[in-house]
């Protein structure tokens, strides 16, 4: 199993749904673009947050194809980053 740290900004298409019992699950990244490639998100497995000073960062653990990605969304800069890729 290989974990690779990336830490690069990415473009993300996100769905915000109103009709979900758990608010944190109502926000779902659907597709992201890393480099020139688009990745379809197959599943969001865990969402958690971290404090980095004043900045609150939401971490989305998602899978696309055979890989698992760690995406982060900063509530301070409103920017998305690809933090890590894991391949089995």
């Amino acid at each position: 199993m290989i974990f690779k740290t990336i830490q690069e900004p990415i473009d993300v298409l996100v769905a915000f749904r109103k009709d979900h019992s758990v608010a944190i699950h109502a926000t779902k990244p659907m597709t992201f673009k890393w480099g020139t490639t688009y990745y379809q998100v197959d599943g969001v497995h865990l969402v958690h947050s971290e404090r980095r000073g004043r900045e609150k960062v939401y971490i989305f653990s998602v899978s696309s194809g055979a890989l698992v990605y760690r995406l982060s969304f900063s509530t301070e800069t409103l920017a998305w980053r690809l933090e890590e890729v894991c391949e089995g």
Partner: peptide, 10 residues
């Protein structure tokens, strides 16, 4: 289990 929840490959 939380790590396995976050990463299905585990």
């Amino acid at each position: 289990s939380v790590e396995q929840q976050a990463n299905p490959l585990l």
